[in-house]
Design a protein around this nucleic acid. Sequence first.
DNA 1: ATAGGTGCAAAAAATTTGCTTGGAT
DNA 2: ATCCAAGCAAATTTTTTGCACCTAT
Lengths: 163, 163
Amino acid sequence: MDTPASADREGISRIERMCIERGLKMTGQRRLIARVLSESEDHPDVEELYRRAVAQDSRISIATVYRTVRLLEEKGILERRDFGGGRARYDQADRGQHYHLIDVDTGKVIEFADPRHQALAQEIAARLGFELVDHRLEIFGRRFPEGKAPPGPRRPAKPQDET
Amino acid sequence: MDTPASADREGISRIERMCIERGLKMTGQRRLIARVLSESEDHPDVEELYRRAVAQDSRISIATVYRTVRLLEEKGILERRDFGGGRARYDQADRGQHYHLIDVDTGKVIEFADPRHQALAQEIAARLGFELVDHRLEIFGRRFPEGKAPPGPRRPAKPQDET
DNA sequence: ATAGGTGCAAAAAATTTGCTTGGAT
DNA sequence: ATCCAAGCAAATTTTTTGCACCTAT
């Protein structure tokens, strides 16, 4: 059968393009997940990705979502994160070095960049005899008391995103 | 019954003392876990803690280990860590601020301290309108090629400890 | 005495996998 | 046509929990 506009319709997502570059077989499901990911500004977990995907096309199973994020992580397209909610969450790998601040009261995650940490991490790795491969920094913080934020639990609320 | 030398025998572990300070009921199992933890220089997961505990006294179940580390975390005696191996790992909370470097080839974890990060994290939190509650830094590195370390997988080997 | 801890096994929760069918190349 | 992907459900893996019994206080 012919595939109408097989590879250059208006709607090729950024992540789909990365998949193609890496020679991945593009099924409808992968295309869908790629689109959902490309449109996501936050750090969804698999359950959430599945929800967003199903909303667009129900012909996808959660097993496929698991298999796909795993594949994309292996291909360096996604990075797996752990913000403490018990579920792995995913972040696009090509957004440049950035870090996360988690609001311990609300669980919201805020991204930030700071070039100084990179240099510091590099230096420390070298001091210990390693070359820097990657590094992660998570800051847990509490919004300055503008109202009255009661002292919350030590363990942050299940992380959610700022969106 | 009398407890011979109830609270000042040679063998009260550091963590047991912290438990007592916080008014926890000290059972044989808790004492044992406290001792195992106090003697651990690394970052064991629950399975490993269980193994070490059973080796000293088999009258303990893994459910109790889970319940106990959870309790100790709530009491601020332990901190839960995630180094990517799929299992939670535990670190004594009172060792001062320190960070971890994970060897991506071997999975070994090395601790280090660096006061500059604390200041930086503080400053960043403030800039974003938060007060600093906690922060974590993990560096993933590869030992400098003294032999020939082939480029390994992106995901580190299941973290093990340096011990 | 009694509140709370423990063991055991079952339940949950998150993720992976075997197998058959379906679809991309 | 071939090989890999997807669906589904069962299996794994990690952690939690219900309940009857036991123990530190």
